[in-house]
Structures are given as structure tokens and as C-alpha cells.
Amino acid sequence: MDSSDFPRLVYLVILLTAVVGWLIAENRNSLGKTVRSLLAWGMIFIGVMAGYGLWGDIRKDIAPQQSVLEDGAGISVPRSADGHFHLTLQVNGIPVEFLVDTGATDMVLTRKDAVRVGLNPDTMPFLGRARTANGVVETAYGSVESVALGPFRFRDVDVAVNGGDMSGSLLGMSFLSRFGRLEISGNQLLLEP
């Protein structure tokens, strides 16, 4: 706990004391029932806090993530709850989440992700056109210094920046074809060199 947390803790203790005091004063005729209610709410609160504290440990079971195969032989990606495959790549050292899209030609960044990885969409010429599910959008082309996926590192990778609204960046075939093997089997996507 650092020094800025102590005043918050004091405030919360005072607030809790005031609330508990008010509850006892209001319910002094049925104090046993009030105590039982307070204990029940206290247990609910403790349960929520325990669940929040354990989330990091159980998240891997509930929402599995990409993993590197033994000896770095490839990347295994589980299908997410939305039915798609999602990969997190380090683009210029910044983690960017991509939706794997085998129907997309390019590695396409949203404007927001492009800025995060060091590109400036405001200075890029949006001369390209791409057909998407939302219609035709303008695209600008550039490159990023590095892209890493687990143990696999790539230099000077071409990217497209989408000029339209897009909920997330797309990982298309220009990047996926860098792997010797791309296989979707059941609920797993496998990428191998």
C-alpha cells in the first residue's frame, strides 16, 4: 500500500462505520436479523473479491489464449467464444490483438492501432481501396519495423491502415503465409514454420 492509498482506506472505513451504525440504529428492535443480513452481504462481498482475485488464474481455463508449442515448433490458438481465432502480436514492441481473417489479403490495422505502433495515419495517403462487409473503404499502406508472434520474429512487415471504422485489426494472408503450415482442426488454429 503506498501513501496515496491510506487516505482512501481511512475514508472507506469511516463510510463503512457510518453505514453499519445507521443499520444498527434503524434495526435495533430486530438486531439478530440485521446481523444475519450483514453477514450474508459480507460473505457475498468476500466471494466477489475472491473471484476477482482468482480471475487471473481461472481466466486461462475459461478463455484460453494462444500458446507456443513445445520447443517453439509453432503456435496453437483456441477458437474463442465468438467463434473466431484471435492472436496477439507484438508490433514494434506493442501488443496488438488481431482477428485472424483468411479472407483478408493484408495485415490491416485500425487507425487507433496504427497510432499505437508508431504510424501516423494523418500523414499517410489513403489511395487504396478494399471491399469489406461494410462496403468499400480507403486504405493506406506502410510498413512496421518488427512483428513478433511468440518465438517468431519478422522485420519490415507491410501493413495496411483502414480508413473506415473497424472494431479491430485483421490478420490477413500476407502475414499468415509467412508460416509453412496453417491448419484449422476442430477448435484449434495451428501455425508452424
Rank of each mutant, 00 (worst) to 15 (best):
K33M: 12
A40Y: 12
D82E: 01
F179Y: 15
V91E: 04
N92R: 04
V137F: 04
R178N: 13
H86T: 05
T105S: 06
L99P: 01
R8H: 14
M1C: 10
L89I: 08
G93D: 07
V48C: 12
G103N: 05
A40S: 08
A148V: 09
H86L: 06
P151K: 09
P125E: 11
P7E: 05
S80R: 03
G56A: 11
V91W: 02
P121K: 06
P193W: 09
V77E: 07
P193Y: 02
D71M: 05
D113W: 06
G53N: 14
G172N: 00
T102H: 00
P125F: 07
F6M: 11
E183M: 13
T105Y: 01
L170E: 04
L190R: 10
G51Q: 12
Q90V: 02
D165E: 14
E97Q: 12
I14F: 01
G47N: 12
M173L: 14
S67E: 13
V96E: 02
T123Q: 14
G118A: 03
D2T: 14
A160Y: 07
N27L: 04
R129H: 12
D2H: 15
V19R: 08
A50V: 14
P151A: 03
I46W: 10
R155G: 00
I62D: 09
S146W: 03
Y52C: 13
L89R: 00
F175N: 02
D122F: 05
L9I: 15
A18Y: 08
T17M: 09
P193T: 04
D57E: 12
S167P: 14
D2K: 15
Q65F: 00
A50Q: 12
V20M: 07
P78T: 05
V10R: 09
S67H: 11
S146K: 15
G51S: 11
L87V: 11
E183Y: 00
R59W: 05
M1S: 14
L191F: 11
L12K: 12
G93A: 07
F85Y: 15
S177Y: 11
I44Q: 03
W41K: 07
A160V: 03
L54G: 12
D2L: 13
E192R: 15
S3A: 14
V159D: 01
G103A: 05
V137N: 08
T105N: 02
L69Y: 03
R178Q: 13
A114S: 02
A160F: 01
L171F: 08
L87C: 04
L170K: 05
V108E: 00
F98Q: 04
L38K: 02
Y52F: 12
S37Y: 13
R111F: 00
I62R: 10
M107E: 07
S67N: 11
V68G: 01
